[in-house]
Every structure is written in structure tokens, then in C-alpha cells.
Design a protein around this nucleic acid. Sequence first.
DNA 1: ATAATATTGTTGTAAATGCAACAAAATGGC
DNA 2: GCCATTTTGTTGCATTTACAACAATATTAT
Lengths: 150, 150
Amino acid sequence: MKEILREIGMIARALDSISNIEFKEVELTKGQYLYLVRIVEHPGIIQEKLAEMIKVDRTTAARAIQKLELQGFVEKKDDDTNRKIKRLFATEKGMQAYPLLKREGEHSDSVALAGLSEEEADMLFQLLQRVRHNIEVDWEFVKKGNKRAY
Amino acid sequence: MKEILREIGMIARALDSISNIEFKEVELTKGQYLYLVRIVEHPGIIQEKLAEMIKVDRTTAARAIQKLELQGFVEKKDDDTNRKIKRLFATEKGMQAYPLLKREGEHSDSVALAGLSEEEADMLFQLLQRVRHNIEVDWEFVKKGNKRAY
DNA sequence: ATAATATTGTTGTAAATGCAACAAAATGGC
DNA sequence: GCCATTTTGTTGCATTTACAACAATATTAT
């Protein structure tokens, strides 16, 4: 019954592909939108947590954020007490790009959920959250170099 | 309510990441497993259709398959009547790798669906299929260079 | 049958991705 | 307080990804 996971993969790649094409309009290259929206929505988040949240390699996140900073979409601020971490914030430019990202996301959402009733969409969300919780345990396990048995 | 799409993105990236790490064991590098399983399951498929099926750029699929061929996992065969297309088939080596890919997929599946009843898993699958159908229309539209209005 | 368009496949190039390895600060155990 | 471990961040390198542009065959329209 692993069709479920294949469906998820197909949907995710299609959506990501669409977003990447559409966000060129605001000078965002492949993947950058993922980070920017979350930084806007979680001001002060650090990149390590952001990578975990997005489920992407730490070093990939590092470079994506580096580029966002270079382009002036976000800025890194030193923490008052912890000298190691750098807190991330959207700049004015980042904030200005946000509404488009939000609108696009909502549009894709409405396209994706077309024909589903409110209850169905709700049920889908609940189920997906549970799946995500289940799978993120394994993701962290495997990412840390451990081996799953099967 | 676009949390649904974010959940899907998180799950897909986590799963893909896990698979990529686990399939190094059989010399498959990033993404290759996607193509190989589908070629095994759809003998004679052509790469254009495969790219559509997976929802990946045609040229990305071309190179992934090229590499699979070079490594001896699949072979391209000329079609009898159509001189342009090349039909894809798994080789003996490809077939030998398949059981592991299948087992891994099933394991991830059972992990992902842990705690869901049969009915819930079923419902999830049905809903995801509908979402996928909805979104693939837009994917093809945007991929072909058209612009969505929103 | 011919011309116009669509399909399928390839290659050049630029960029993102992720692993390995490293460094430095923070945290936890004793 | 001190040492071991964990967390956080970075860079070098190899690979994948995708866009652009092209070529060749197939399909459709006239």
C-alpha cells in the first residue's frame, strides 16, 4: 500500500516545481521560498531549526540562507547570550516578497483541494500531520547515521 | 489552510532523504530509485512518460536514466515502429535491486501509517489521489510556459 | 503530399543539494 | 571546575537538477 507515499512525492515535486518557476518573478531561485516564508513566520529562528523544520540537509539550508542574506531578503543577528547561534529575520525586502509567496501558496492550496469538502480537507490535514510526525522520527534517526531495520 | 501542502512537502523531503541514504547500499545515488522502481513496474515505458509520471523535468529524467543505463540497471531498446522513442527495461541487475527498494518502500509505508486505521489509510490515499490529479494539471500548464492567474 | 506543429531525446551551462570534515561554542555528567 | 558530548555553523567537493537551445522523428491540418 505504498501508493500513498508515491502520491505524496508526486504532489510535492509538482508543487515545488510550480513554485520555483513562479517565484523567479521576485528573484527567488530554486528552493529559496521555503526558507523565506518560514523566516517571516518565525522571526528569530536559527538555521539549524529551520533545516529540521523544512527537512533538508543542514548544509543546504546554510547556503540557501547565505544567499538570501546576500540578496538582502533576510538578515542574521547575533544572539544576546549565546555567541554561537545567529537569529534570522526578514528584511524589508523579504517582507515585501512575502505577500506574493502567501498568495501563490493559497492559490496552489485551492487548486489542490478543489472538489474536496471542508470536512475532507480537514481530515486530510489531520492525517497528514500524523504521517509527518511518524516519519520525522525516522528522518532524524537516519540523518544522524543510524540504520533502520527492515 | 495551506498547511496541507507544507505537510506534504515535509513528508516528501523526509522520505526522499531517507531513501537516498538507504539506497547507497545498492549503489543508487540521489533520485535514481524513483526511476528504477517505475521502470521495473512499467516495462517498456519511455523516458518522457516517466518524467511526467514522477513529475520531474524531462532533462533531469534523461540524465538519471542515462546513468542507470551506464551502471547497468536498465537498458534502452529501440521501438519496432517508432524510430524516435526508446523503451526502457530493467536488466537482471536492476531486477535484483528491486526487492530491496520494494521492502524499503513498504517499511517506510508502515512507519508513515503507524497509528492509522485501515479506513483512515484508505481515506488518505483517496484524498491524495484527488489532490494529485488536481495539481498535475497546473504542473503541466506551468511547465509548458503558461502563467497561472492569482 | 506537404507544411506546420508536437513529441521525444540530447547537450551546454549554471545553480542547488548533500556528504565529509572541520571549528567553535554550549551543554551535561562527574 | 573539567572533560566529553552535543549543537551550531562553515567550506570543499562531487553530484543532481533544471533551463535553454537544438535536432530528429512523428503527428496533425490543409
